[in-house]
């Protein structure tokens, strides 16, 4: 192991560039899957006929196959039906599909945890169904959902590493470029330790924030 040789300023900068790609792709996918997952979760909670059954099947299928398969599928198989995506777009699409399905379940069970009486109270005080949902049920449910949502975000950030298989220049990829250099063998362990450390710092910080929020609201 050669820590000094592995952690030169150039290498660190290069790894950081990779991590920024990871964070960017994960960030976009988080926003998209929060929106789409929220919509799906709400539609299923509201039990809108047909639509909610179709979504239930889709969610169940997506949740039960590996994300890696979805990534491969988006990048290698979709072009066969005319949908052509760059590695970045494919990574964002695959992550969004998978995490939307996961988040929709979190959000649905969060909504279900709010007592049905509240919905009835809202309705009888003259609010429409959508208004009741938006002003009364959702704000309470969101507070309860914060910890599981954040842990889903942490999963997403970790999962972004899988996009290395479709040539996305993210953290894992840039790490492998460093140890593919002549004489790079002794960099392998130091690089892996550093990459693990970078993920840990960001994810651990997120989980602490989630715990704080949980304490505040309960």
């Amino acid at each position: 192991m050669d820590f000094a040789g592995a952690y030169t300023p150039d290498h660190l900068k290069f790894l950081l560039e990779g991590f920024l790609v990871t964070l960017k792709v994960a960030g976009i996918a988080i926003v998209l899957s929060f929106i789409i997952g929220g919509l799906i979760g709400t539609i299923r909670y509201a039990k809108i006929p047909i639509l909610s059954q179709i979504l239930a099947i889709l969610v169940e299928l997506i949740r039960n196959v590996p994300l890696l398969l979805i990534i491969f599928f988006t990048f290698f198989a979709l072009p066969e039906v005319g949908i052509k995506l760059t590695p970045t777009m494919a990574a964002i699409t695959a992550l969004t599909i998978f995490e939307s399905a996961m988040l929709s379940e979190v959000i649905r069970s969060g909504l279900n945890s709010i007592h049905k009486g509240q919905l009835e109270a809202g309705r009888s005080s003259g609010l429409s169904y959508v208004q009741t949902l938006w002003h009364i049920v959702l704000p309470q449910a969101l507070r309860r959902m914060v910890p599981p949502i954040v842990s889903q975000f942490i999963s997403l950030l970790k999962d972004t590493s899988l996009a290395v298989v479709i040539s996305l220049s993210e953290l894992m990829h840039n790490g492998s470029v460093i140890y593919a250099q002549p004489g790079g063998d002794k960099f392998i362990m130091p690089i892996f330790i550093l990459i693990a450390g970078m993920y840990f710092v960001v994810n651990y910080a997120l989980s602490i924030i989630a715990r704080r929020l949980e304490l505040k609201t309960t």
Binding site: P79, K84, I166
Partner: peptide, 15 residues
């Protein structure tokens, strides 16, 4: 940067 596996899809995708 491409690999043997990703190069043809990336060409087809217009990347």
């Amino acid at each position: 940067e491409v690999t043997s596996k990703t190069r043809i899809p990336m060409l087809q995708n217009g990347d």
